[in-house]
Structures are given as structure tokens and as C-alpha cells.
Amino acid sequence: MELIVKGHSGYQIDIVREGNDLYVYKRCSDADKATRLMRQAAKQEQATTHRHTGFQTPHILAAEQNGDNASIKMEYIYSRNFMEYFESAGFEQIDYFIHTLIRYIEEELALSPLQTIDTRIVTDKFSSVEKTVNTNPHIRKDERLANIMEKSKRLLTGINEWKMPIGICHGDLTFSNILFTANTYYLIDFLDSFIESPLLDIVKLRQDSAHIWSAKLYTKPYDPIRLGIICQKIDSELDTYFQRYDWYKGYYRPLQVLNLLRVLQYAKEDAIIDDLETEISKLLYAI
């Protein structure tokens, strides 16, 4: 039996029964995507060797690349997505989830010593994003965008020293990459990050808790007020907790601006573009 699941990442995802067990196959036939998928599989399998309290990772059982084609096979996890989980979670479950997220980041921090990174890593990333934004035909090149790009550039190039924990991170730690089971949470879809820092995981988490990003891709009906209540709670707890670190206080907002610009550069729908520009503006004017 084979079930095709629609994903947002451009990969084909099939759930296949083999004997009594279910497996997930993720495939693509594009050179760039194939390379990324192989790196993702390696990072995910590597993550299974780190013991995290409260989070597990599905095992990668096979990964192969043949030219432009690549596929990975991993264990299937009987689970619910974040929206279904939040829609029925009691306050004590949300509380536990928040504390598990904080513990996860703390465990990453224990493996990530403070280091000063080359400022060009950030400025080069911004330059590359700026180029892609300027060539994206769906984005209106108006005054608002010009202001956003100008202010963002000033913000990111104005920081002379980027000193933050460097070591490990998930790379795309959004709510949609967390599977919720009755007993634990599973992390999927690991990604290489341009800075391998737990701070980048906080940025991705708050992309969802502060900017409600994953909900925009959710296609089934849901209660937006309840989701807003839960996200606001998660966001304020994360923000309050990590305020104890200077690197968080200093770099969270600039890196969130850069993160949302990275999303914006590939956006195609007017509503999404408008929303992203609004969220980036809010961050820029809050600084």
C-alpha cells in the first residue's frame, strides 16, 4: 500500500507498508534538492545519536543518490501535526511542550561554545537574499520594500561582532517539523544552517510562535484565536527565558529579520509577501 502525502518542500513523500511496518520515502529528481536531501538525511541520522530529553528523531534506514535523483527511507511515526495537537492540548500539555523546547535548546547550547563568527557570513547571506528578492517577479519593488531592505542592511552590517554559541542546531526548527505523539515529540526535516547555532533554532521556533508562519501553510480549518493564544504563550515564555543570554538579546532580532527575508525571497503569493513585509517591518521598527 502506498499513500502519497503532499508536502510544501517540493519533495515527494510516500508512506509505504512493507510487511507489518510503515515507512516514509522522501524522493526528488532535482540536482540541488537531491544534494540537500542527502545532507538532511545525514544530519537527521546524526541527531539520533544525541540524547535529547523529550525529543526523538526518526531513524534514517536508507539514503541513496543517483545523479539528480535521490531518495531516503525512514521510520514512520504515528503522530499528529502541531495544529491538531494544539487544537486539543490542555494547558498542562502546552506548558510541558514549552519546557521541553527550552530543555532541547539548552542541550544544544551545552554542545555549542561561544565563538565569534566572521561578519561576512551574515553580510554575504544578506547580499545573496537581497539579490534574490530583487529578481523575484512576484515582489513589488515599491517604497515599502526599499525601506525594508535599506533598514535591514543597516541593521545587519552595523553589528561589528557576532559572538554566539556555535556547534549544533536542527536548522529548520519550525512547529511543522515537529511530530506530536502521545509519549514524546519527534523532530524531522533537519537542514544545514548558514550558522550552526542554537540561536538559529530559536529564530525558527519564534518564526512560528511570534509570526505564526506554519499556520499560513495549513490548509484545514482551525481556530485562529486558540492558535494565537497558544503561540503567544509559547513565544513569551521562550523570549523571557532566553533574555538571560547576551547573544540572544543582541542578535535575535537582526537574525529574525534575516530569516524572514530568506523566506520572503522565494515568496510568490501576494498575501504571503504582504504579511512577511509587515512582520519584518514590525521587527525593524521595534529595534
Partner: peptide
């Protein structure tokens, strides 16, 4: 906190208080 939102129920306010 929720003033002006359509579809607001007392259950939302109670859930928000529970979370706090």
C-alpha cells in the same frame, strides 16, 4: 487582549487564563 476579534468565546478567555 482579544477585543475586536470575531469568533471569540468565553472558552478562549478561560483557556488563556489556564495557560497563565
Amino acid at each position: 487582549r482579544f477585543a475586536g476579534q470575531k469568533g471569540l468565546y468565553l472558552s478562549h478567555i478561560i483557556y488563556s487564563m489556564l495557560l497563565d
